[in-house]
């Protein structure tokens, strides 16, 4: 989770990732940021993200992102 927050901070600073639950709905993360995050997550955790995973529910908060990472790690 720590590592995830670091990645997020690096890609797009000035957002409250620990508490915000509407990263997508409020347009804080745009498609460029989403893909940058995915790219970093793939490198950092050795997972592979498919287009089917790119839904707001997976990206709206750091918690949801972490849950997705854990799930994909298990599947890998």
């Amino acid at each position: 989770m720590e590592q995830l927050l670091e990645i997020l901070e690096d890609i797009q600073p000035d957002a409250d990732y620990e508490h915000c639950e509407t990263l997508i709905d409020d347009g804080i993360l745009d498609s460029f940021a989403i893909l940058s995050i995915v790219s970093e997550l793939e490198d950092a955790f050795g997972i592979s993200v498919t287009p089917a995973e790119i839904v707001p529910e997976n990206f709206n908060s750091a918690k949801a992102l972490w849950a997705m990472v854990c799930r994909l790690k298990e599947e890998a």
Binding site: S31, V38, P51, I54
Partner: peptide, 10 residues
Amino acid sequence: KDYVFYPVSL
């Protein structure tokens, strides 16, 4: 975005 951009990028 959903059917070209993400699939191509990923």
